[in-house]
Amino acid sequence: MLISRRRLLRYCLLSAGALGLGPGEGWLLRRLLANPSGPSVIWLIGSACTGCSISFLNRISDVAGEPATVTDVLADSLNVLFHPTLMGSAGETAAATLERVRDEGNFILMLEGAVPTRFGGHACVVYQRNGRAVTYQEAVQDLTARASKTLCVGTCAAFGGISAAGSNPTGAMGVGQLTGRPVISLSGCPVNPDWVVWAVVQLLLGREIELDEDRRPMALYNRDLGGGAAEPILHDKCPRNPGLHGTPVAVSFGEDGHCLENLGCRGPHTKARCDGCWNGIAGNVAGQPHAGRWCIGVNAPCHGCVEKTFPGLQSFFEPYVP
């Protein structure tokens, strides 16, 4: 995993408010992150596009004005023992590592991708052991039963998402729907890396994460950036909200800075903290100007990618009717 404990700590302290850390908890976090025998992590990818892994790599170690090179990012890494896109080993060696961690138990499971159930699960085979193909479906059932916590990273793992859209030819579904187990869902297409870091920190701190009815953390999807109780409907806090800011409503693309509601924006029906930032500087909190970027900032409507209803059948370019 490409997160140094030092970087993670620095990031967490910088954004303590956004992460919900109280004063005095920094030392606890520091101790936990310094512990090399922290919980093992298995990151498994199913019916997905690898975009959530890529998004995750986009976030940490990002401080304004620094050179692009990250010299200490790999020091004291988190204990991620299996990640198919990053790991050194392959084949039987990789499969053996996964099964060893599984058998030892007490690991955090991070799942990216929906679970295809048709063709006996063979629309997605994740590894082979002793000549036998193990499907993602089988691995998910097995691993979620043994993991200390399961994080569903992205909308596919959380709800089925794009993988389960349309006529859903592979019978794909979210991990919670398949297993009925108490997963923690971090939706988004892709997931915002900030939210993943938040959830990992909560687990390291041994905190219970309060979840909404879709098993998403209340703090990420149902509160504002400062942790307040106001529902974070994107439209309600959008800097282009006509009611709040008198912004003109766009009738066509290319109208810079206008409200995008008539062009298909799902912001009025989407609860997320995308206003926190994407591809930018970690540690943004409410009230600060955007150092990072987001869809609406480039005149692109919100497509509601964090919601259970994504992508749905409606056009992304017509006014959205939930």
């Binding site: 975009g51 890529i54 990002d62 892709p190 591809n279 930018g280 970027r293 869809c295 480039v298």
Partner: peptide, 15 residues
């Protein structure tokens, strides 16, 4: 990717 997001808004999956 941060460069791409200057005009693309968000990466991956720029809108």
């Amino acid at each position: 990717h941060e460069m791409a997001a200057v005009f693309g808004g968000r990466l991956p999956h720029s809108p």
